[in-house]
Amino acid sequence: MENTPAASPCRVGLFVTCLVDLFRPTVGFAAVKLLEDAGCTVVVPQQTCCGQPAYNSGDKARAKQVARQVIAAFADVDYVVAPSGSCGGMLHEHYPELFADEPETALAAQHLAKRSHELISFLVDVRGMKRVDARFEGAVTYHDSCSGLRELGVKQQPRQLLRSVEGLSIRELPGAETCCGFGGTFCVKYPAISDRMVTDKAEDIRRSGAGTLLAGDMGCLLNMAGKLSRLGVPVAVRHVAEVLADMADRPSIGAPDRK
């Protein structure tokens, strides 16, 4: 097996994220499998949300209230890993800033930030994973979600692992780095602008010619899947971890469950 973990065994706290917990638990189990394949022991501490909805709405007090719980719950794991660049970015980039004016928590926030990662970049950059043992027939295209891309540098890692999936080919998405228009509460606060952005995105996805769209963030995936199905574009939508963990046998996001 080529996946000899570069690092020694470690204890990973899975930050499930609210959207995975609520909409797509399969992604959580895919993350657990990939982490275990990379030699990690996975625990799932009590958790709710990272606090980003309040933080990005300008409500620092409530964001802190939620973030304090995360900091406490994940205090004793080696790493915190989230199947999301957005929540991962919140923990890694924004917690230290959120508590910058609160010295008694700032240190703990920084300590958490340093140990926090987005799933796929953690597997490749920290655990040295080079390939996965998975099979997926067909062409996929990949959307680079904004926070993962610009805050955490997630770009080549998912593509590198996807190239090792048997039967899979990658068709690059035109405008892959352009926002899909989700933006958390933005998509319901400014639905007309969000609609224009996701309509353009759906057109690019259709033009890619791929049968499946992958990305690393549930928010973007729900937005794009919802628009593709509204427009009747027959493209299946999945979180990249489902394919990498060889767990793409469930109905895709927004598809009927025929079982």
Binding site: F23, R24, V27, F29, V44, V188, P191, N223, D257
Partner: peptide, 23 residues
Amino acid sequence: LAGGWTGVRDMPAPEGRTFRDQW
């Protein structure tokens, strides 16, 4: 209560049971 979302796009349905419940 989700008109801002479903006015312009569908809302994909959850798979059914939460991750934490299953875990």
